[in-house]
Simulated scan of single mutants.
Amino acid sequence: MTEPPRSRRAEYAAATRTAIIEAARLLFARHGYFATKVEDIAVEARVAPATVYAVTGGKQGLIRTLVDLWSQAPIVAQTLSRQETLTDPDEILRDVAAVTRSMRETYGDIMRLMLSTAPHNPEVADGLRVATKRYRDAIEAVAARLGDIGGLRAGMTRAEATDILWFYFGYSGYFTLLDDNGWTYEQSERWLVAQATAALR
């Protein structure tokens, strides 16, 4: 069954919302959450400030939208679904590293924004908690799959495996290697797979 075509008004509303979100994301990454004003977002998106509030709920609403954009990206569900069909632990870990890398390349600006702003703003902190719960749940699902196929060291619990996976594939792994060490994504991905494999197996 095909969906009925959207009206011109609906298409315009969707385009306006997208323009506002993209403008906010750009300006938040460039200037930070606090230095970016709704008026700046409006200028970048070529809309009135009132439209930013009406369409997205202002800066707080935009933060929630960006959290959902990142933490509910289709690639997450697709990855977990695919991993249910995999039976090779090494393949699963390579897949996790590749998807985590892809998420960093696509949404790293949002992650950095949330991590740097959360300590200073309760609304952003709430958004980060939601995103982290989703992220951690996905990591736990990987740990469970590894346990189901015998991909964990004897005696290792799911909770321990989740903690180890989070250490390597949570927020800090790629950011430390990329930002602090100046490694490439390819170097980082290879190293994280090797270290996680050694720690889990």
Rank of each mutant, 00 (worst) to 15 (best):
E39W: 07
E123S: 14
Y53R: 09
G32R: 13
L115I: 13
A125M: 13
A144D: 09
T87I: 08
E39P: 02
R8T: 12
A24S: 13
I139E: 01
M156N: 09
I41C: 00
L115Q: 12
A144C: 10
A154F: 06
Q72R: 13
L128R: 00
L86P: 00
W183F: 12
R64Q: 12
G147H: 12
L192D: 04
R17C: 02
G147F: 02
N181M: 15
T2F: 08
A144R: 14
P74L: 07
D40T: 05
A143T: 00
Q187A: 06
D88V: 05
M156T: 11
S81T: 15
A45N: 10
Y168N: 02
D126Y: 10
A196K: 02
A73H: 10
A48N: 12
T65V: 09
A15I: 04
S81Y: 07
M114Y: 07
E186A: 14
I21M: 06
G170D: 02
S172T: 10
L165Y: 00
P119G: 09
E105Q: 14
Y171L: 09
A10V: 11
P89A: 02
V52Q: 04
L69C: 05
V43M: 11
T157H: 09
D95W: 05
I20V: 12
L86I: 09
A138T: 06
W70T: 00
G61I: 03
Y135R: 08
F28E: 03
A24E: 07
Y33D: 06
Y53G: 00
T87L: 12
L192H: 04
E140F: 04
S7D: 11
Y168K: 03
A48F: 09
V38N: 00
V67T: 08
L192K: 05
E84N: 13
Y168M: 04
R46N: 13
A138H: 02
R6I: 11
T51K: 06
T132K: 03
L178G: 06
D163T: 11
I20Y: 05
G108A: 11
G170F: 07
G147D: 07
Q83R: 05
D180H: 15
T197V: 04
L80I: 10
W191L: 15
R8H: 15
L62R: 08
A77T: 11
A73L: 00
E160D: 10
